[in-house]
Design a protein around this nucleic acid. Sequence first.
DNA 1: CATCAGGGCCCTG
DNA 2: CAGGGCCCTGAT
Length: 325
Amino acid sequence: MKSNPDRQLTCVRSLELAPIAPFHFDSTFHKPSHFPSSDCSWEPSRFWMTRRWVGQPVGLKLQDVGTVQQPRVSISVFSAQPLSDRSLQTLVDNLAFDYDLFADLKPFYSYVECDTLMQPVLERWKGMRVSGAPLYESLIVYIVLQNATVRRSVQMLENLFDAFGDAVEFEGRLLSSFWDPQVLAAVEEDSLRRLKVGYRARSLLRVSSQLITGFPNESYLRSLSDEDLRQELLRLYGIGPASVGYLLFEVFHRYGCFNQVSPWEQRIYSRLLFQQELVPAQRILMEVDQRWGPWKMLAAHYLFEDLFWLRRHEPVEWLENLIRL
DNA sequence: CATCAGGGCCCTG
DNA sequence: CAGGGCCCTGAT
């Protein structure tokens, strides 16, 4: 992370949103299973993040000013130049989509009402949403995740932030921001490799180019069926079945897409679902399908995050060995 | 010191 | 459709 901001974001606009109840602020905006990155920061009931908006970095502060049953979220948008009403509104609409604020999860809760695994988890996290990021940002994250340990993924992303993102300051907070795909697409592969991203340099470049030209926009992508969307995303260079699995769920909120289990996740689900060390991947996929049908990935997400929240308070012995730092 | 595998994916045969 | 190679890093 840079020590000096490239920009001070001094213009502020504020508004409030009322997500559909039930809504759980902290578990929506903070995902303990994700690796930390300097473009956001969380404290109980408060969340700061940056986002690219019409070619500029903006800062956002979100605050929990309601309750699970009467949810309200206050949003402050910080920018270098004033935003028009229309621009602000579109930005907030995007944000609401990414964090699933207006999803009605009541049908899901009814579906899993009698599930013994889910009951205790829902007592803690009912109202948690799937939180995503814009497509391009997510692609970058999934590329640096590939074939790397957590520490290395963090290092690669921070190197990229330092080289191409804008460091911004608002409310006394210094955060990184992403960059526009045009910036990366114009870079030499060698200078990317110097940032220790290795062979991923090629994927980063080609994905950036693909997003500028020749890739459908997000509103079209959102309109596609799960299968069509999967096929479309697989066209991105360096994005294979594992990354697409994450994209479908996190970015596009396809709650029922769960047909890929990586080895470390396989071990985690083996424990959570079967209290065993290692169950065949196919067995896990069958089980979640039978238990949770169209909600299977969402339900699995609840279990997964619950486990990582638990780990914050006390280390989970068997889990620590699976998380390779 | 060498070797290897890691929260995949592409490319080749 | 199986399997080798790929950047780097830390573990052995």
